[in-house]
C-alpha cells in the first residue's frame, strides 16, 4: 500500500469539529441503545468500497493512537491512503494490534479470535469492528436484550446470517471481554456491544 501520490483526492469532513461531534453522538446513541437505527451523514465522496457512513465513523474515532485493520476489499491503497491522510491512524496487517477493524461486508468477517477482546483487568482494551451492513431491516431477524434495551429489540441487516449471530452470541458469552460491533447502513448506523444478548 503506497502513498497518496497518484491517487485521487477525496475530502474528509467539511466541518471537522461539528461533523465529528454529530457523528459521535449518533455512535453513542447507537452503542447505548443496541439494535436501534440511528441516522448518520457521511462525507460526499469517499474511495470505494469505503461507504460514506464508514468513513464518517473512522474520521470521528480514529487517529494516530488507534491502529486500524482493513479486511477484504477495503485493503486497497485508495482506502488505506484516504484513512491515513485524514486520521493519521497507522494501518496494520496484524488484526490483533488493531483498535478498529473495518469490514466491507459480513462475509469478510475474520475469525473473532484474531481480534483483541480485552483482558480481565482491562476489558476496554478490545477492538471495535465496523461492518458495512448494506441496509437494515432485511435478513434474519434476531431478538436483542440487555443494557440499553427496555425489553427486547428485533434486529436484522443485510448479510447477518445464522453463523454470524452464533459468533456474535459467543462473543457476548465472554462478557465482560469481547468485541463491540458497529453496523453501517446507507445513512445510518446500529451497534451491538458485547453486553447484548442475542436470541434467534
Amino acid at each position: 500500500m503506497s502513498g497518496l501520490a497518484q491517487q485521487e483526492y477525496f475530502a474528509g469532513f467539511g466541518d471537522p469539529v461539528h461533523e465529528a461531534q454529530a457523528c459521535f453522538r449518533s455512535l453513542m446513541e447507537a452503542m447505548s441503545r443496541p439494535g436501534s437505527i440511528v441516522e448518520v451523514d457521511g462525507p460526499c465522496e469517499v474511495p470505494a468500497p469505503l461507504s460514506p457512513v464508514m468513513a464518517s465513523v473512522a474520521l470521528t474515532l480514529c487517529d494516530y493512537e488507534t491502529p486500524i485493520g482493513l479486511v477484504g476489499e477495503l485493503r486497497s491503497d485508495a482506502v488505506a491512503g484516504y484513512l491515513r491522510f485524514h486520521t493519521s491512524a497507522p494501518v496494520v496487517d496484524d488484526l490483533t494490534e488493531a483498535a478498529f477493524v473495518f469490514l466491507p461486508n459480513v462475509s469478510a468477517l475474520p475469525d473473532l479470535g484474531t481480534m483483541r477482546p480485552g483482558t480481565a483487568s482491562y476489558p476496554d482494551k478490545s477492538a471495535t469492528i465496523v461492518i458495512d451492513a448494506g441496509s437494515f431491516g432485511t435478513g434474519l431477524d434476531v431478538d436483542l436484550s440487555g443494557p440499553g434495551i427496555e425489553t427486547h429489540v428485533c434486529f436484522s441487516a443485510t448479510g447477518l446470517d445464522a453463523p454470524f449471530w452464533r459468533h456474535a452470541q459467543a462473543n457476548h458469552e465472554r462478557y465482560p471481554l469481547g468485541l463491540d460491533i458497529i453496523f453501517c447502513g446507507p445513512n445510518a448506523i446500529a451497534a451491538l456491544p458485547r453486553s447484548t444478548k442475542i436470541e434467534a
Binding site: L27, M28, M31, S32, L61, P123, D124, S126, T128, P147, G148, Y175, P176, D180, P193, R194, S195
Partner: peptide, 8 residues
C-alpha cells in the same frame, strides 16, 4: 465513552 457504555 463508547467502551464504557459497552461494559456498563
Amino acid at each position: 465513552l463508547l467502551k464504557a457504555i459497552a461494559v456498563p
